[in-house]
Design a protein around this nucleic acid. Structure first.
Lengths: 342, 342
DNA sequence: CTGAAAGCGCTAACAA
DNA sequence: TTGTTAGCGCTTTCAG
C-alpha cells in the first residue's frame, strides 16, 4: 500500500495525503478527517526509507554499548545487570517518545567503524554511547567529534565544546564519598576499597570519592587495603580474599556485583557480615535486596539517566542542538543490613 | 558523499560503482580494486534508505520483548537478568552476522501496533519475539501470521504451519524434570515448587516437568506445597514464606531470581540451606554462583538460543523461508551447594 | 486549500 | 565489461 493508492481511494493527490501524514496545517479539516480514516482503515503506514530519502530525518537512535575486551577475559561488562538495565530503560523511554532504538555491542575497532557507518548511511540520526573508557581518542575522532552524540560515563573536559554533544554522568564522586562517609560514621577506620575498572570514569570517580572521605575524616589512606577490580563478580571475589588478609572492618565495593561476591569471600573465611565486616556496594541492583544480609548500597537512578537522554534527544530533534552539554545525576544511599556500627 | 561522486572520482558510471558495492561479478578486477580503494579513501557508505527504496531488503531485525503489564505491578519481567542476557546475546550474534537489531519493549497493545508498523514501513525484514504469553491471539493475528518471525518460549502447536515462522524453545520440561529428579535422588520426598508465570510456556513446562518427576517416583503430588509465582524475586520471597509453613525439605523454583529470594525467606525463618531445606533454581544467572550457598540450578544456554536465531535468520535471508519450524535447546543441571542429600 | 512535477540516492534491466 | 535510463515511494516547492 502506497500513498498513491490512499490518494486514489480518497480522490485527492498524493501531496495532500503527504500533508496529512506530516501534520501540515494547509489541509481542510474535513479532508484531513476523511484521509485519516481511510489510512486507518487500510492500515497504511508510509514506507520509511522513502520518507528518509525524501528528506525526513530518521527517528532511530543508535545505542552503542562499548565493550572492547579487557585482556583475555571472555566475560563482558555489557552483560552485567547494570548495563542491561540501563539499555532497557533507554529503550523504554525512547519508545515512549516515538523513537526507535538500534542497539549495537561494540567489541572491536571494526565494530566501531560499523557504528560510524550507521551515521553515514543515515540509519540513525544520533547515538548514545555507554561503557567507553574515559580516554578513547579513536571513539572521539571517528564519531563523537563528527555526529550528534550523548555519552554516558565519560569525562566532559576531554571533549571539545560543541552543541552536538551531551555528557550524562552519575555523580559517582559524591556517591563514593557518601558511601565511605557512612562507614566512617559507623565508626569504621580501616575501610578497604575494591574499585571498578579505573579506565572508566565511574571507576575513577567512586575511588576519588572514597579517598576524599577518608581524607576529610583524617583517616590514613592505605593502598594495602585497596585493589583495582573491573566491575565483574569474579574480581570482587578474588580481590576480597586478598584484602581480607589485611586488618579491616569494612569494604566499599565499586558496584553491587563485586560487593555480593566479596560477601561470599568474607563468609568463606569464616567471618560474618556485618558483624565482622561491613560491606557497601554501588548501583542498587534488584538482587541486592534479596541476599542475606541485604546489601547496603548507593542507588544509581538509571531511569533518570534514561529520561535525560531521551528528553535531550527530543529537544535536539526540534532545535538541532542540545540545550546543555553536561548533566549530572544525583545518587542516594540505601541503607540495609550489610553494614553495622562498630 | 553519493555513489555519483564516487563514480566521478573513478571515471566510471554510478552503475559500476553500484555493482562493486553489491558484489556483482560483472566488473573487471582492476576496475573493482580501483573503485574499492576510492570508496575506502573517502569513507563512502551508501545511503541505506536509498538502497532500501531501490529494492535491497533491510538488514535490520526487530527484537520485541513482550511485557504486557501483569496486574498493578510496576516491576517488569523485561528487566530481569534472564531477558537482558538473552537480548544481549542476540544482538551480539546478529552484529557478527552483519545484521542490525532494533529493540522494542512492548508493554501495551498500542506498542504491538507500532511493532507491526515496523514491518509495514519496511524498517525491519523480520522479528524476534520473546516474553509473550503462550496464548495471545492478538500477537498471532496482527504479526506472527503475517510476517516472518521467530518466537521464543511459545508453544508451536497453537500456530499454523508456515515456513515463515520459527519457534525456538528451551527444553523446559526436561529441565524441570531433571531438577526435580535430582532432588528425589537426594532422598527428598516433600518437594515444594514455586512456579513461573503459568501463562508463559516456560512456566507451564517447568511445572509439568516437576509433576512428571514426582509421578515417576511415585511421590504424592500435593498442591499445598506448590505456588504460582511470576518469575520475579518478589514472588519467590513471598511464596517461599507461605510454602515453608508446610512440611517440606526442598523447593524447586522456576528461576534463579525466585530461588535466591526463597533462600532469603528460608534463612529468615531460622532454617538453613541446604541443611534444612534444599533449593534449586533455573536459568543459571551469574550471581547464583556468588551467593552463599551457591545455587544449584538448571543452565539455560541462552547463547545457543541466540545462535539458532541468527543462523536461522541468515538462512532465511538467502532462501526466503526457514529450514525448520521448531528448535529445542537442551538444558544442563548445574550442581552447587544449595542442595544436599537428605 | 490542493495538485503537478521535480528530486532524494540507489538498483537493475536493457543496450551497447 | 560498462553506461543509460527508468523507477522505488515519499516530500516539497511552485502554481493555481
Amino acid at each position: 500500500m502506497t500513498s498513491g493508492e490512499i490518494a486514489k481511494l480518497c480522490g485527492v493527490s498524493r501531496a495532500t495525503v503527504s500533508r496529512v501524514i506530516n501534520n501540515d496545517k494547509n489541509v481542510k479539516a474535513e479532508t484531513r478527517e476523511m484521509i485519516l480514516s481511510i489510512i486507518k482503515e487500510n492500515n497504511y503506514v508510509p514506507i520509511a526509507p522513502a520518507r528518509r530519502l525524501a528528506g525526513i530525518a530518521s527517528n532511530v537512535i543508535g545505542l552503542f554499548v562499548i565493550d572492547i575486551n579487557i585482556s583475555e577475559s571472555t566475560t563482558r561488562v555489557s552483560k552485567s545487570t547494570y548495563f542491561s538495565q540501563l539499555v532497557n530503560f533507554i529503550i523504554d523511554q525512547a519508545n515512549n517518545f516515538g523513537f526507535q532504538v538500534l542497539v549495537s555491542i561494540v567489541t572491536s575497532v571494526k565494530q566501531l567503524n560499523e557504528a560510524r557507518d550507521l551515521f553515514i548511511s543515515r540509519m540513525i540520526f544520533s547515538g548514545i554511547f555507554i561503557g567507553a573508557f574515559n580516554e578513547n581518542s579513536q571513539l572521539d575522532d571517528m564519531i563523537i567529534s563528527q555526529y550528534p552524540t550523548i555519552i554516558i560515563d565519560r569525562q566532559f573536559k576531554s571533549m571539545v565544546e560543541n552543541s552536538n554533544r551531551l555528557v550524562i554522568n552519575l555523580d559517582n564522586f559524591e556517591g563514593g564519598y557518601e558511601a565511605t562517609q557512612f562507614l566512617i560514621k559507623l565508626g569504621h577506620t580501616r575501610i578497604g576499597h575494591i574499585s571498578g575498572d579505573l579506565r572508566k570514569l565511574s571507576g575513577i570517580e567512586r575511588y576519588e570519592g572514597y579517598k576524599k572521605a577518608l581524607n576529610d575524616a583524617n583517616l590514613c589512606f592505605d593502598t594495602n587495603i585497596i585493589r583495582e577490580g573491573n566491575f565483574l563478580e569474579d574480581s570482587g571475589y578474588l580481590l576480597a580474599h586478598e584484602i581480607l588478609q589485611e586488618n579491616i572492618t569494612a569494604i566499599f565495593c565499586a558496584n553491587d556485583g563485586m560487593a555480593i561476591s566479596a560477601i561470599k569471600a568474607i563468609k568463606e573465611r569464616g567471618l560474618k557480615v556485618p558483624d565482622d565486616i561491613s560491606v557497601i556496594g554501588f548501583d542498587n541492583i534488584v538482587i541486592g535486596n534479596y541476599i542475606m544480609p541485604s546489601l547496603t548500597t548507593v542507588d544509581a537512578p538509571l531511569q533518570d539517566i534514561a529520561r535525560e537522554c531521551i528528553e535531550a534527544l527530543n529537544y535536539f530533534c526540534k532545535n538541532k542542538h542540545f540545550i546543555k552539554n553536561e548533566i549530572k545525576i544525583k545518587t542516594n544511599l540505601v541503607i540495609r543490613e550489610s553494614t553495622k556500627e562498630l
